[in-house]
Design a protein around this nucleic acid. Structure first.
Lengths: 200, 200
DNA sequence: GTCTATAATACGATAGAC
DNA sequence: GTCTATCGTATTATAGAC
């Protein structure tokens, strides 16, 4: 039976890719304006499709947002796991794994909307479904640092704090400010990697 | 002329206090749901007045939000300046001023909505008026640390990072999560002060 | 000063054609 | 799979009475 042959992979890839392109567009918009501020119509326009189709594809705006933060969490953990594996392969036994995770976190700024959409989710703790997913995602990062990377609580806490400051500078689009204080803050926090922030 | 006598202070105080009560209610709501998520009707109900009156009193929702973050910035800087003065009066010349500012920041969690409304503003950098005000406010804190408290850039950066992590745990309402990982994270970040977070 | 009533619009979601 | 048309509702803001 010819029907046993697999469907042309082109079709399925295109479908999954299109879905991911919508999620990428939604990540940027939710990252900029937050869950309530970004509209399904804005996502649709950015993705070049109709507003009802966005809702149809994900079921609801809330489900779309949950898919966005799930995708961001996956991107982040993949970047961390890759950096950790490389760091271990390079044979850095006694050192601090965060020395490898930090640069990976900054490189991820090139993928727009990952940090900011997660951060917007973190600020919705009082929304029942989103809040639960956000707490869950944050604790998954914590568990990765403690259990997979093997760092102690204070090192993990400090690493997360540095990450949250970077997220805030991304949310602020701080490079838009041209005053010397802004330059000093950006230099102290990110050095020349400040160019990766939104607004730069 | 009897009209030269000052107006009864009762009247004016009551008016200013009522305005501040509205701002306090708005701080909590904007902190929880963000600029777009909180509605003027929710603020009005929380303050026990009508929705059109909220808009009338502040001119627009955006002006109300800007008043909220202005008030939060004032509360924060007042707490910092008070703690810094006490610390200097106690004669701690060679130490780190952040040792006094940190506890003051945690005590301010009792005043609901200060940290979270500021954080929500920080995540709206792409909104023209709000973004500019948010960057301005953040840099005012930075300038306080550098110029008034006299701390070096790396100490200031690290202090701000710790603060941003606390803000995120407040936004997440992390104490709602009962798993041991959440307890470990909260203990590492706030110790017994975790009880001051929303959601606790 | 504060309210009620309401205008004007924006939004998420559904129905149904193709 | 994807669109157009549209419904029902929520939201900001204004008008105007008291």
């Amino acid at each position: 039976m010819t029907s046993l042959a697999p469907e042309p992979t082109d079709r399925r890839m295109t479908s999954a890719e299109r879905r991911d392109a919508i999620l990428a567009a939604a990540s940027v918009l939710f990252g900029q304006r937050g869950y309530f501020g970004a509209t399904t119509d804005q996502v649709a326009r950015a993705a070049g499709i109709s507003q009802p189709y966005v809702v149809r594809m994900f079921g609801s705006k809330e489900a779309l947002f949950l898919a966005v933060i799930g995708r961001a969490k996956t991107s982040l953990l993949a970047a961390f796991r890759g950096a950790l594996a490389d760091w271990r392969a390079a044979g850095a036994a006694g050192g601090d794994p965060c020395d490898a995770l930090g640069p990976a976190y900054l490189e991820l700024l090139r993928e727009r909307g990952v940090h900011t959409s997660l951060m917007q989710a973190f600020m919705q703790g009082s929304e029942p479904a989103i809040g639960a997913a956000a707490r869950d995602g944050f604790l998954e990062i914590w568990a990765f640092l403690r259990d997979e990377a093997g760092v102690d609580p204070e090192t993990a806490r400090s690493f997360l704090a540095d990450g949250m400051l970077i997220n805030v500078l991304a949310g602020l689009e701080m490079p838009r400010d041209m005053r010397p204080e802004a330059a000093e803050l950006l230099e102290a926090t990110l050095g020349d990697k400040a160019r990766l922030l939104p607004g730069a």
